[in-house]
Amino acid sequence: MQALWMLMACLCFGTMGLMIKLAGTHVTLGEIVLFRGAVPVVGITIWALIQGLSLKSPVAMLHLRRNIAGIIAMWCGFYATTQLPLATATTLMYTSPLFIALILWLWFGQSRNWLEQLAIAIGFGGVVAVLQPVIASDQLSTALIGLGAGAVSAIAYLQLKSLGQAKEPEWRTVLYFAGTATVTSLLYLLGFGEFAVFSSTGSGWPLLWLLALGFFGGAGNLALTRSFGSGSTWLSAALQYCTILVSTFYGITVLGDIPSSTTWIGVLLIIACGGISSYATHKRKLSKV
């Protein structure tokens, strides 16, 4: 069942990426983040009130630290998704295991065994391979923002561990993050006046895409949290890279983005980095038992 939850999360996140790409040519970045947050906020709040559950968290400061990193990663990642080929943007955002390994090694002084060092080297090789076609098309700055999303996501994932240890329920973690996305996007829209979806004439597709990305984003977040909390962390971490494959499929079949051979090599190397890193972490935990 754990594997099914993660595969569902991958399908949801891959579909969310497609919705962002489709909506990105008609609406603003602020609107994309707004709907990504507001749709789950409304849905989860209604469900919690019906169930008689409290929306107040006893560990609000843990949420704050996690959400600061997570919301920065979201804004950067969504911007990269609107500007880059879907497979390229998704791959760069999924470099977080590489940065987690580097943070634990360089900041916390955690020793690396040969397997983890191999994962870091493979991950860097994958990043270089993915960036090469981007550099050739003068989109390096945008690609670096996408890569930054992967780096900041690593910090957010490390904060999630603290929330799990505090026994914070999954739905409230997702709710608080979605609420942060809603607030920051509203501030952005009020400050810059970029609200285009209701002023556009003709097709109602942009609004439908925005609603869909909010639904799939919230559902993916819940499925991801359930997967990580229901069994082997290693299995969940390894399976999450299926999102890149889903995004690549959508990019080819729907958007007509055919990755170059160099990009394919980079995608495979980054997936290998994540899988090896997750397995090495799994072995490290077993050795301490």
Rank of each mutant, 00 (worst) to 15 (best):
G125I: 03
Y157G: 02
F35N: 03
I120Y: 07
T225F: 15
F192K: 11
A69R: 00
C12A: 14
A69Q: 04
A119P: 01
P97I: 09
W107P: 01
L211Y: 03
I103G: 08
T173H: 05
G30T: 07
G70R: 03
G179V: 08
A178C: 11
C12Q: 07
P259G: 06
S203R: 08
C10D: 12
L245K: 07
L163Q: 01
G256R: 11
W107K: 09
S199D: 06
A212L: 15
G266E: 07
P97V: 06
S141W: 05
S200M: 13
F249P: 05
L102C: 12
Q159D: 02
M19F: 15
G204V: 08
W114S: 14
L11I: 11
S96M: 13
W114C: 08
G217K: 06
R284S: 12
G70Q: 01
C242N: 14
M74Q: 13
I258K: 04
L131C: 03
R112V: 15
F78E: 06
I270H: 11
G123A: 14
I155G: 07
T91A: 09
T201W: 09
A237G: 10
P133G: 07
G229F: 08
C10K: 03
L4N: 10
Y241F: 14
L92F: 00
L49R: 12
I32L: 15
T45D: 09
G52C: 04
L106M: 12
Q159F: 11
Q165A: 13
A154I: 02
L269A: 15
Y94T: 05
P206Y: 04
K167N: 14
N221S: 11
I135F: 05
S96T: 10
F195I: 14
L64T: 05
T281K: 14
F124K: 01
R172G: 07
V27I: 11
P259M: 08
L140E: 03
A196W: 06
S236I: 02
L4P: 01
Q165M: 11
